[in-house]
Design a protein around this nucleic acid. Sequence first.
DNA 1: TTCGTGAGTGTTACCGTTCTCATCGTGGTC
DNA 2: GACCACGATGAGAACGGTAACACTCACGAA
Lengths: 343, 343
Amino acid sequence: MRDVAKLAGVSHQTVSRVVNDHPNVRAETRERVLAAMRSLNYRRNLAARTLATRESHTLGIIGFETTLFGPESMLYGIESAARGAGYLVSVATVRELSHRPVREAMDRLAQHDVDGIIAIAPKPAVITALTHAPAGLACVAVGGANPVVGPASGAGSGFDQFPTVRVDNAAGARLATRHLLDLGHATVHHAAGPPDWPEAQARVDGWRETLYAAGAVVPPVTPGWWDAAAGYEQGRRLAADPEVTAVLCANDRIALGVLRAMHENGRRVPEDVSVVGFDDMPDSGYFMPPLTTVHQDFAELGRRALALLLRHMSRPDDGAPPENVVVAPDLILRTSTAPRKNR
Amino acid sequence: MRDVAKLAGVSHQTVSRVVNDHPNVRAETRERVLAAMRSLNYRRNLAARTLATRESHTLGIIGFETTLFGPESMLYGIESAARGAGYLVSVATVRELSHRPVREAMDRLAQHDVDGIIAIAPKPAVITALTHAPAGLACVAVGGANPVVGPASGAGSGFDQFPTVRVDNAAGARLATRHLLDLGHATVHHAAGPPDWPEAQARVDGWRETLYAAGAVVPPVTPGWWDAAAGYEQGRRLAADPEVTAVLCANDRIALGVLRAMHENGRRVPEDVSVVGFDDMPDSGYFMPPLTTVHQDFAELGRRALALLLRHMSRPDDGAPPENVVVAPDLILRTSTAPRKNR
DNA sequence: TTCGTGAGTGTTACCGTTCTCATCGTGGTC
DNA sequence: GACCACGATGAGAACGGTAACACTCACGAA
């Protein structure tokens, strides 16, 4: 910068003004500085800027060290939006969604002076860990359960401390369950996800609630995981039960496993059993049969999270309660669901 | 740091020595400084350190803004290895794998003072863009085609300029094709990926080469993409042709589409047609039928890339030719392949 | 004329480290 | 006893920007 200043015959401060688009610079001077910058191939040093301003123009993302479809897509949504806003994105992953690792990840990001953090926070431990963020470091949580509405969203839940963005999982489950009931199924079984994930729990809740409201029997739920292997296990159990005519799966990968288990047991989908997924992964339209599923727009979720973070950063602690954005999912009808057969 | 120095009754320089584990500090002094650091909850400011040392302890990753299974998994492999080596990882994605966007991504990372860059570089344009990296910025490319062996790997290809890590795609395709021929299939058809991706092309090459060596007919190849929709299109064509008894798919998602097309056309897998995939995605064992496929260890690829980058960073431009690591894939046998039926 | 005002510019300090070099004991060597 | 090497420490100058403030005009109002 000193060299640029010398070449342009101005002070380094004027160069700084040009770089930062400060209005009070004569057009001719600006031009001269720009020319000097070009000819010296000048690039401003962000480390120095960070040191002086305490703004790194870098955002941190805390993610789960596993390739789950949702988090991935969000990462891209966030990154591309961040790029547009002039931020670079740094990633810190955790092998386990518990307090300690998340805090370490946060410390690592904080040490690198990130201006804000977006945590992909499917489990409550992540949110509580976020509570210990250094003062002044803006955080947003994305994913997880639906915030409890009304006065019940008490202290300590995190929802009253951080802006959050999430999909209305319960609503998605309701949509899907309702759809199956409307097709004439007496009740709907559920191939659940891991019970300690609020997202999975919210889907259970939405499902159970809908059955209850319809006066249908609520079948028992067994704990699972998010992949096809777990879905297959659950599917074998469900396929063996002749009462089962409709299954809501906690995500598409589970549905894939269920589909396979049904097939192996000679239960045709959708003729004998209807199956619904959750997520709408890019290929679920090519399952056998193409999967009716609840669509979540993860990229949009990422963009919303970024927007929220940026807003939160610009007006730190204004006393207003944090925003909790909830995105509505919708049901994609394909051919894995059909009216219940007459027996 | 000044505060810590004052509290410990030493100079800031001594604090710096303690922080950096410099040997020449009396044990008792070190202890006093550490105590002061603890009581003031001191954390060193990385921006200042970066400014002084020109080392940011941050690595950049250039990725493709699409959720493809491989790149995802590599990201995690790299990140977790980088963490172990004391680096933070920043991500810059590109919407398009051409020169301009990649260069912009690189500039963005360079401006943030990354110490090195790992580019997920499935297309040659990425590598040529890397050629324009600022001097002294270490780069490693991961993915893409197999480096040409022997003197043919001429100038300009990039392989002679950057360390690279990749899976031997041609070998994987050979493995799979050989397997199908060994099962008695007269020839093997190929549901290809995008022809402008060297990885897809290398798979075509390995496949064609094996057929040729076996004296089998080499069926024509039509261009595709990496997803199930494209696989379905190709699958419909293949299913309509009674000559087709074995299909090698350029990846598992394509295989999913092919499987579905076969099913719709009444061609049973594996009884009538054998199908092999490529990648070994976590759920491909739950396709119908479970997919025989070529396994790639993406996480390992990421780790290797990081190791290479670190080595490259520590001894810049030693004149030695860059290393090109090639990882061998292996074939996972499941039930989508079977001996050819007698007709 | 005199003064205030605001645009355009320069001066100096400061952000929190590390680097280079100087200083001061201390003990071993000749 | 003089000399030297070395361990332990400190002082000051970078590193490359931005912030705060001072200064100089030109111009319009009092």
